[in-house]
Design a protein around this nucleic acid. Structure first.
Lengths: 130, 130
DNA sequence: CCTTGAGCTTCCAGTGACTGGAAGCTCTAT
DNA sequence: ATAGAGCTTCCAGTCACTGGAAGCTCAAGG
């Protein structure tokens, strides 16, 4: 398989696949013309990576997950721990965004948004207490 | 004021303040010794930037907000529109994170996390339907 | 007066995970 | 023979900082 087909079937851009090779996540063989020659197992790995990235795992987490996946003697606790840590990070991000959202939506609601310059949003950013 | 005091009073790291000068968000004067000499108005601007960044506005949004703040003839609608767009982006991020969270927490719950290799998390990443 | 240490300066490089673009080779169809 | 798509490598840019090196300035203590 050439990179175009792998890109299509894995859902990853060809650029990303080349990048993953650069950083050692996949090691496709090469045809005599210099083109990357992907096997089904490479495609499988790339699809795995795509799904792990879609769950928000970092590239380094993905590397760990791949090696656990390929390690017959892994303990599922290792995977679960990694996933739980990631879950905690997601939760932290969500609550940070939610507090941003709460303040910002209050500010937006308090601004009448017309042609006059008075704006509680700017007042708040400027540190004026109201 | 030297940069250290401004850093302390604005809550921004000195490195960040220098960076903000680099990209033209503040223009402190200089003392004869070459040190940056901040006025109260610079400090005020930096605190404004800190609060805008804490609400998740991009640097370019901050630049726009600052110029609106300094523009006596602004229309509050301009500010409100910017804030509403940003609010929509925050909402999009939150819901993306929440769907990640939903799937990931289901996977975590289904993995017993012991010393055996069987792991529904890895199975899911590998694309195995269960 | 000298030294020490904190604080300031600039400049360069790195972060994460790609993404865009240029220059050039290969393949397929006409 | 040629056109166009697809492939190659390499370099630079994104965003918003952050770390570190090398060197200058200032205030206090001996």
């Amino acid at each position: 398989m050439n990179i175009g087909e792998v890109a299509e079937r894995s859902g990853l851009p060809a650029k990303t696949i080349r990048y993953y090779e650069d950083i050692g996540l996949v090691r496709p063989q090469r045809s005599r013309n210099g083109y990357r020659a992907f096997r089904e197992s490479d495609l499988h790995k790339l699809a795995f990576l795509g799904r792990a990235r879609a769950l928000g795992f970092t590239i380094e987490d993905c590397r760990t997950l791949l090696s656990l996946y390929e390690d017959e003697s892994r303990e599922s606790a290792q995977v679960k721990t990694l996933a739980e840590e990631h879950l905690a990070e997601i939760d932290a991000k969500i609550s940070q965004l939610q507090s941003m959202r709460a303040l910002l939506s209050r500010l937006v609601a308090s601004c009448c948004g017309d042609d006059r310059p008075d704006c509680p949003i700017l007042d708040d950013l400027a540190g004026e207490i109201h």
